[in-house]
Simulated scan of single mutants.
Amino acid sequence: MATTSPPASTDLGINHIIADPGVILPFVLNNALHVVGALAILIIGFWLAGRADFLVNRALRHSKHVDEMLRGFFSSIARYFVLTIVVLAVLSQFGIQTTSLVAVIGAASLAIGLALQGTLSNLAAGVMLLIFRPFRIGHAVTVGGNTGTVRSLSLFWTEVVTDSNTQIIIPNGSVWGQPIRNMTTYTQPVTTAQLRVPVPTGWGLNDACTRIKDITVATPKVQAAPAPSVLLDRGGTDNGIQIVITFAPDGDSTGSIKNDILRAIDEQMEKPGRQQRAA
């Protein structure tokens, strides 16, 4: 059987294109212009994306209600939005129809959104928490039925550490959708205690107030703020003049502080007698 050779017209056509500059030159120039235009779009697009990132970050930096993480999130959205437009422009530069591509991307985004609706709800809740800031790092809170100290807050979850040093990761959807109790936002009132003592024998009123206040200030576990106060009042069975000592104890130490103050006053009262016995 005789073998058939490839048509000679194909080789002649290729050789004709290669040998004839008038045929290949417009093809090369046309595609080179497309490549140069695409490169120019990419360079300008990347510059614009960087500027969008910088401008959004700088604009949000002046707001006290926008967290640093949230600034980075919004600036990244602006940057990727510009880059998406740049990619579509580059594809259009090569004659690719982007309308159908945009429709495919939209359908894919919808499908991904439906599949990840729980995760996206946590993301939306995280954005709301970062904007409105119902609590901050280090606050003692009750969120999602859990009580502890906030260790970190991300776009998807909140980390709480309990008093027993147990880590709890709570999805932001559960945090934002339930009541939040913050025990740190408002300063707790300082607990104060009072001690009433009669005016020591032989002490004048002004001298007694000064000396007893000095004793109270020097007593351990008495907080410096608010400062202890010493005032005069009438009381007791005989309605006599009493010295009212008001102080802020450090923790649960009111009883020991009162004991130390009374002991120090008694020692001050005994000093003149000791000096006379020593003489």
Rank of each mutant, 00 (worst) to 15 (best):
1 M>K: 04
3 T>C: 07
8 A>M: 06
8 A>E: 13
8 A>V: 08
9 S>A: 04
12 L>E: 09
13 G>M: 08
16 H>T: 04
17 I>L: 15
19 A>C: 05
19 A>K: 10
19 A>L: 06
25 L>E: 14
29 L>P: 01
31 N>H: 11
35 V>T: 14
37 G>V: 04
37 G>M: 13
40 A>W: 05
40 A>E: 01
41 I>K: 06
41 I>L: 11
41 I>Q: 03
42 L>E: 03
45 G>R: 08
46 F>M: 09
46 F>H: 08
50 G>T: 03
51 R>M: 11
52 A>K: 10
54 F>W: 06
58 R>A: 02
58 R>S: 01
59 A>N: 05
60 L>S: 01
60 L>K: 03
62 H>I: 06
64 K>I: 04
65 H>L: 07
65 H>Q: 07
70 L>A: 04
71 R>M: 02
72 G>M: 01
72 G>F: 01
73 F>G: 02
73 F>C: 04
80 Y>A: 00
81 F>Y: 09
82 V>E: 02
83 L>Q: 06
84 T>A: 14
86 V>D: 08
87 V>G: 12
87 V>S: 14
88 L>M: 11
88 L>P: 10
90 V>L: 07
92 S>Q: 11
93 Q>E: 07
97 Q>A: 15
99 T>H: 11
100 S>I: 14
101 L>G: 15
102 V>Q: 07
102 V>F: 10
104 V>G: 10
107 A>I: 12
108 A>T: 06
109 S>T: 13
110 L>R: 14
111 A>T: 11
112 I>P: 00
114 L>C: 11
118 G>W: 13
121 S>V: 03
122 N>V: 02
125 A>C: 12
130 L>G: 09
132 F>G: 10
137 I>C: 07
143 V>I: 12
146 N>A: 10
146 N>T: 13
146 N>D: 06
148 G>T: 00
151 R>E: 14
154 S>M: 05
156 F>T: 07
156 F>D: 13
157 W>E: 11
159 E>N: 11
161 V>P: 12
162 T>N: 00
164 S>Y: 00
171 P>T: 02
177 G>A: 09
177 G>Y: 02
189 P>E: 00
195 L>W: 04
197 V>E: 01
197 V>A: 00
201 T>E: 15
202 G>S: 01
203 W>A: 00
203 W>R: 05
205 L>I: 15
206 N>Y: 08
206 N>S: 12
207 D>F: 07
207 D>Y: 10
208 A>R: 01
209 C>I: 06
212 I>F: 04
214 D>Q: 11
215 I>H: 02
219 T>R: 04
219 T>K: 06
222 V>I: 05
224 A>N: 10
225 A>R: 14
226 P>L: 03
228 P>D: 01
228 P>K: 05
232 L>E: 09
232 L>I: 14
236 G>H: 03
238 D>R: 06
240 G>V: 02
240 G>Y: 08
251 G>V: 04
257 I>R: 13
259 N>R: 12
260 D>A: 10
265 I>Y: 03
265 I>H: 04
266 D>G: 10
277 R>G: 00
279 A>F: 09
